[in-house]
Amino acid sequence: MQKKLYTIGYSGFKIDNFINTLKEHNINIVIDVRSVPYSQYNVDYNKEYLEKILQYNNIYYRNYATEFGARQENKIYYPNGYLDFELFAKSKQFQTGIQKLEKTMQKNYKFILMCSEKDPIRCHRTILVSRAFYNLGYQVIHLLTDKKELTQADIEESLLNKYFPDRFQINMFSENLSNEEYINLAYKEQNKLIGYSIMEEL
């Protein structure tokens, strides 16, 4: 059986609907990938309250800001002024997060990566974190409002169509890339668009 994980952006979900969606998919652990686990506009998703209501519904809460957060303190991961997802994905802390969740899954827990952004293609949970699991052979399902779903394969197709809409046209003047090479470049471009930026100290 193929390993499976889910992701969700809570924007657009009222808390009761959010909980029901988790239950419908038998989720028993929420992995919060926000660097700052608080919301000014959706206070139901502030860490302490969210953890409490999840616990009431027999769902565990874990914050993985260190392992998977979009805002990392170490400036080594910002070579171009924004968080380089590929570079950070090779870090010890990121890989430790992957390994911890893989061990958790082996104990028959079903987890979901949670952030605030409603559209998965615009969130680091998809372009950074779930990509890593997808490359390890996991089936990745992004849960949307109105019971809609997208897979990581759907995301990759959208990225390709966004950045390389003419990739199937034969071009005699440039090197033809493989589909995998196009996908890697598309992820890089999306990383530039959504990666957290820092201002260098003067």
Results as ranks from 00 to 15, higher is better:
residue 100 K to F: 06
residue 121 I to Q: 04
residue 140 V to A: 03
residue 24 E to N: 09
residue 50 L to P: 02
residue 193 L to P: 00
residue 44 D to M: 01
residue 19 I to N: 00
residue 44 D to W: 00
residue 58 N to W: 12
residue 22 L to I: 07
residue 104 T to C: 10
residue 75 K to C: 06
residue 79 P to D: 10
residue 178 S to I: 15
residue 8 I to Q: 00
residue 32 D to V: 09
residue 50 L to N: 13
residue 15 I to P: 00
residue 123 C to F: 06
residue 149 E to S: 13
residue 137 G to D: 01
residue 53 I to F: 02
residue 193 L to A: 12
residue 39 S to D: 03
residue 55 Q to K: 15
residue 97 G to K: 07
residue 98 I to P: 03
residue 26 N to A: 14
residue 102 E to C: 11
residue 21 T to R: 06
residue 103 K to G: 06
residue 201 E to H: 03
residue 141 I to C: 04
residue 74 N to W: 08
residue 201 E to Y: 13
residue 184 N to A: 12
residue 161 N to R: 05
residue 22 L to S: 09
residue 129 V to Y: 01
residue 83 L to T: 11
residue 170 I to G: 04
residue 82 Y to I: 06
residue 60 Y to H: 13
residue 118 K to Q: 06
residue 24 E to C: 07
residue 185 L to N: 12
residue 98 I to D: 11
residue 94 F to N: 03
residue 198 I to G: 07
residue 57 N to V: 01
residue 166 D to S: 15
residue 201 E to A: 08
residue 132 A to E: 14
residue 117 E to Q: 04
residue 76 I to R: 05
residue 135 N to A: 09
residue 159 L to E: 11
residue 58 N to H: 12
residue 27 I to F: 07
residue 126 T to S: 10
residue 126 T to C: 12
residue 167 R to E: 02
residue 182 Y to Q: 13
residue 52 K to P: 01
residue 142 H to F: 05
residue 73 E to I: 12
residue 189 E to V: 05
residue 80 N to V: 08
residue 117 E to L: 02
residue 170 I to S: 07
residue 156 E to I: 15
residue 156 E to M: 14
residue 67 E to G: 03
residue 200 E to Y: 13
residue 110 K to W: 10
residue 137 G to C: 05
residue 127 I to P: 00
residue 160 L to Y: 14
residue 190 Q to A: 12
residue 50 L to W: 01
residue 196 Y to M: 11
residue 198 I to F: 04
residue 84 D to H: 05
residue 176 N to G: 10
residue 164 F to C: 15
residue 113 L to G: 09
residue 112 I to R: 08
residue 22 L to A: 06
residue 194 I to E: 05
residue 122 R to T: 13
residue 54 L to E: 08
residue 126 T to I: 11
residue 165 P to T: 12
residue 200 E to N: 13
residue 97 G to R: 13
residue 80 N to G: 11
residue 73 E to G: 05
residue 199 M to H: 04
residue 198 I to V: 15
residue 17 N to F: 07
residue 183 I to C: 07
residue 83 L to G: 06
residue 65 A to S: 15
residue 66 T to D: 07
residue 16 D to T: 10
residue 94 F to E: 01
residue 145 T to F: 04
residue 199 M to N: 14
residue 23 K to Q: 15
residue 60 Y to P: 01
residue 69 G to L: 07
residue 140 V to T: 11
residue 112 I to L: 09
residue 159 L to R: 03
residue 118 K to L: 02
residue 122 R to N: 10
residue 86 E to G: 04
residue 176 N to A: 05
residue 132 A to I: 05
residue 160 L to R: 07
residue 50 L to R: 01
residue 29 I to S: 04
residue 131 R to I: 02
residue 118 K to E: 03
residue 99 Q to R: 07
residue 14 K to I: 01
residue 55 Q to S: 13
residue 119 D to W: 09
